[in-house]
């Protein structure tokens, strides 16, 4: 096989198996794939390392000792110190070397992969179906490899195979996975296809992602600030068949804890006023005193960020990604105790 085919094969395999699009790793793989051919002085690496190649070619037939599991193991051992510095680099090196000779398995004369045994490893068994160097079939393989390599590089620079799969297919659970892994770095937008749970009208809208609720459900927010539980579970406002997640802009997360001991909610919140924005979400549980007259209106068609349970003289209020405005208007004047987590998403 030509050295360019080897390099392409090694690059593709490195990108696929290491899940990377990093140029240094790919280059290492491609360079290492040239090394097995050092056993003939006709190859480029053989000409560069002429003393080695002339020593080898006097003693061994082409594609024997350097094209074997033995040599791969030996090189892996010798270069083991590289693991300490850069383990990925070492993996790329070994993978590249392995691919360098393994591609020759598909050629007419095969490789003595199990050296010192002289038996030659070939795939497939029929020699008529194997490649010969410089044949049209090899150029075809080369073209296919280039396409696969480009596809893999795109996929890997997009965050890997799983990420691409999730974002293409848009299964709700996959969307939750993406939000879990990227929600802290990017402001995420969700294109939702599905239907309203109550109205049974179809939905094809773009929402902003607030946070994941369960493994299948997301909390989304529309432009007016209304929240919707979206996913496939029963108590969702939007039953989604597909959720496509897009990155919008990088963000920074700020999380603050707020302790209340029989204090007025509005006064305590005022202390945090300057760090709040339209993307501030308040979570937690508060015990509100004198809550007999406290009424929380519930909505059937959107997510209830504040829920209330009446106890004796006190009310237990659950906050789930509530906005500061809502909290202020509803609980501002009450005395309450408990702890709240204020999560602020700051768009950079």
């Amino acid at each position: 096989m030509r050295s360019i085919t080897h390099a392409l094969f090694a690059t593709t395999a490195t990108s696929l198996l290491l899940g990377t699009a990093e140029p240094t790793l790919l280059l290492t793989g491609a360079l290492a794939s040239q090394l097995p051919d050092v056993d003939t002085s006709r190859s480029i690496p053989g000409r560069i390392l002429l003393p080695v190649s002339s020593w080898l070619e006097k003693r061994y037939p082409h594609r024997t000792i350097t094209h074997s599991f033995l040599a791969t193991g030996a090189i892996a051992l010798v270069t083991l110190p590289v693991v300490i510095i850069a383990s990925k680099l070492w993996q790329a090196l070994i993978l590249g070397y392995f691919c360098g000779w393994f591609a020759d398995v598909f050629t007419k004369s095969g490789v003595a992969a199990f050296y010192p045994s002289a038996a030659r490893l070939v795939i497939p068994g029929n020699p008529q179906l194997r490649l010969s160097t410089g044949s049209p079939a090899e150029y075809f393989v080369m073209a296919v490899l280039i396409l696969v390599a480009i596809a893999l590089l795109t996929i890997n620079s997009n965050g890997g195979i799983l990420r691409t799969f999730n974002s293409t297919l848009g299964i709700p659970s996959g969307a939750v996975e993406i939000v879990n892994s990227e929600g802290s770095q990017y402001l995420l937008m969700a294109q939702v296809y599905g239907r309203w749970a109550i109205a049974q009208q179809s939905v094809n809208e773009k929402f902003e992602v607030v946070r994941p609720l369960t493994q299948t459900d997301l909390l989304l927010k529309d432009s007016s600030g209304k929240r919707y539980r979206t996913g496939s579970s029963q108590n969702c406002q939007i039953i989604a068949s597909r959720i496509l997640i897009e990155r919008s802009s990088p963000v920074r997360l700020q999380v603050q804890e707020m302790q209340l001991t029989e204090q007025v909610v509005a006064e305590v919140l005022a202390q945090y006023q300057n760090s709040m924005s339209e993307r501030t979400y308040i979570n937690g549980t508060l015990t509100v005193e004198d809550a007999e007259d406290l009424v929380v209106t519930t909505h059937a068609d959107s997510f209830n960020t504040i829920t209330l349970q009446h106890g004796r003289e006190v009310g237990v209020v659950q906050l789930e990604s509530a906005s500061p405005a809502e909290v202020l208007s509803l609980l501002g004047d009450y005395y309450a105790s408990g702890s709240l987590i204020i999560r602020t998403v700051e768009v950079l």
């Binding site: 095969g110 070939v122 795939i123 068994g125």
Partner: peptide, 8 residues
């Protein structure tokens, strides 16, 4: 002296 690598 061949080893058919297809099964592998």
């Amino acid at each position: 002296q061949w080893v058919d690598g297809t099964p592998f």
